[in-house]
Design a binder for these strands. Structure first.
Lengths: 345, 345
DNA sequence: AATCATTTCCAAAGCGCTTTGGGTGGCGGT
DNA sequence: ACCGCCACCCAAAGCGCTTTGGAAATGATT
């Protein structure tokens, strides 16, 4: 069923039917009701492609998900981010088109998506500190919002980020307050901006207390369970093993816990652990009594808000690009405690 | 840059340019080369919507991801499934459009997607045993492939599934062979077809050996970490605690392990555990020495193949709908061992 | 009763592409 | 010199919608 047929059925012109359905004022309310009812009854849906052609808008948003070539891994936070964004889109009649692309090939995909006219706007995932995509998209003139930031990029652009630096600074401070001095950082890949900001927070906190940075305690890899296990195991085998771990992901921390327990140690007593918690739906950290002390920030909520910002940006492209910095909460759980006496200094 | 402008630039007609770019034979190879080069140079991409309107094909596949209302949870396997499917799509010039929808509302979304002409085909996720979507899509006449099966649906339809029943039967047999008799099943939601098939496999194995089914050992919930922990904890506190657990997901099994270790027991010695492993990218079960004994089947590969089947189905809608049953491998890891003597019988 | 503003509707153009149904020019054959 | 046949190219229609620029009908005003 298309517009023409529907109009014929009703004995009206396409114009009138179109206007009736799109809420234009120049059509009699009685006629509109009749049209709406007929449309309902015939299960009529305007053809997106035709509508898009006519209006010049695709009513779709593009997400380009980077996929690590190395581990063929797609970051699990995307699922929840997209779930959040999807809520916003569907409330506003937008579709979401997804491309999974190998790390570093993203530019071409953005270009294609825009060039084909398949999307009205884009979300940029996983920005690097000096991410070339931002200048490119700015240049292309396509509305976009970055999930995260690119510290080295100076031109203004729309972003939404968690205050990662502050979160990790506070977490480190918290551990220092508990008497820990040998604190291992198990970060994500530090070419990614969020990870380098977390490291900066960790640095700041240690330096503010005059605790020397120890490269052998600072790790940076893709956030798999395996990475957590392997690295923590090696670190715990040292004579001067860390008494605390600051971990970048709920996935990795699972591996860290495994290494701790394998060694017969007890988390929260022998070794303290803080993790960042994106509040993934299947990994709830226990509402009542969290297992892990964590810096918490809902990535789903981030998705919702980023999508919202993008839609506003599409509606008002002339406004200056908005930024939103979400603060993570430091929630105390059972995985932290005072540093063991023997280890103090 | 659109076709008309490009054609004008070249001093050719739109027809010729279009044909040159789409590989039709009736254009001089020299001309074609000239056209292709100009297109490249001007960064020309045909407008999807216009092309779609003209050809009647959307060059896009729809994925409707169900999202549990209860836990606001999106199953983590979707990430990897979609990564696999995405590979196939992009190799074939298809886009992927994603909708996240609350459980049970999926029908409307499929209808919309198809009605709007936004997609050429659909993948059905998370089928229930008597899933109404299959009849509906069949009725709509839209090509689709089900990831999984719907046991109660009799009409032929295209599906790709893992042999869940066989996998869990073999896993249960394996535990029985090791002397276990009190084997707990921690299944996913059994309204989902794959879960009910797994239960059937478990049943079959127990009954074949004359081991009575014990309802208190059979659980069915959404596969969160928390579910694994809570349930295993309760079970382990019993006088007649299970000596083995058969778990439906890598996420849930993390919780099971937590409960086991919290109780001071050792996995693989005091308690045996087998899990199903979808080979999620960030949860590799250790290639060399798997932590968990597991029924393994790559959900990413399933995505690749399901997408392939769908594309073939779109190309040849008249062929009978193909089915593909993947066998899971039972890979032995460190989480299983003989039943403790005290517990035998 | 004539005029004018409103309301309600319509015909047709146009969005950017594909595709149908020719046209034109050069060539070999006679 | 003529015919017919390719090889190569083009004009125009059409995909399903929105939107412009009226037209017809209605009601209010003088």
């Amino acid at each position: 069923m298309n517009l023409r047929e529907l109009a014929q059925n009703l004995g009206l012109s396409q114009t009138t039917v179109s206007r009736a359905l799109n809420g234009y004022p120049e059509v009699n309310e009685a006629t509109r009701a009749r049209v709406v009812q007929a449309a309902e009854q015939h299960n009529y849906r305007p053809n997106t492609r035709a509508k898009g052609l006519a209006t010049g808008r695709a009513m779709a948003i593009g997400h380009v998900i980077p996929m690590s070539k190395q581990h063929e891994m797609v970051n699990p936070v995307f699922g929840d981010f997209i779930a959040g964004a999807g809520e916003t889109y569907s409330r506003n009649g937008y579709d979401m088109v997804l491309s999974l692309v190998e790390d570093g090939q993203e530019e071409k995909t953005y270009r294609d998506l825009r060039g084909k006219g398949a999307v009205d706007g884009l979300i940029v995932h996983g920005p690097k500190s000096d991410d070339p995509r931002i200048a490119m998209l700015d240049d292309l003139g396509v509305p976009f919002v970055v999930h995260g930031r690119a510290s080295a990029v100076t031109l203004p652009y729309a972003w939404l980020d968690v205050n990662n630096r502050n979160a990790f600074q506070r977490a480190t401070d918290f551990l220092l307050d508990l008497g820990h001095r040998r604190i291992a950082l198990m970060n994500g890949l530090e070419e990614l901006d969020f990870a380098s900001r977390r490291r900066a927070g960790y640095h700041d906190a240690l330096q503010a207390r005059g605790v020397p940075l120890r490269p052998e305690f600072m790790h940076s890899e893709e956030m798999t369970e395996r990475y957590g296990y392997d690295t923590a195991r090696l670190l715990l085998a040292r004579d001067d093993a860390p008494t605390a771990f600051l971990v970048s992901s709920m996935i990795t921390v699972i591996g860290v816990r495994r290494a701790i327990e394998e060694r017969g140690l007890k988390m929260g007593r022998d070794v303290s652990v803080i993790t960042h918690d994106d509040e993934l739906s299947y990994f709830k950290n226990g509402q009542d009594a969290p297992i892990f002390t964590a810096t918490c920030s809902s990535v789903r909520e981030a998705g919702r808000q980023a999508a919202q910002i993008l839609l506003e940006r599409i509606a008002h492209p002339h406004l200056p690009p908005p930024n939103r910095l979400l603060e993570a909460q430091l929630v105390v759980g059972g995985s932290t405690g005072p540093a063991p006496i023997s280890a103090k200094d």
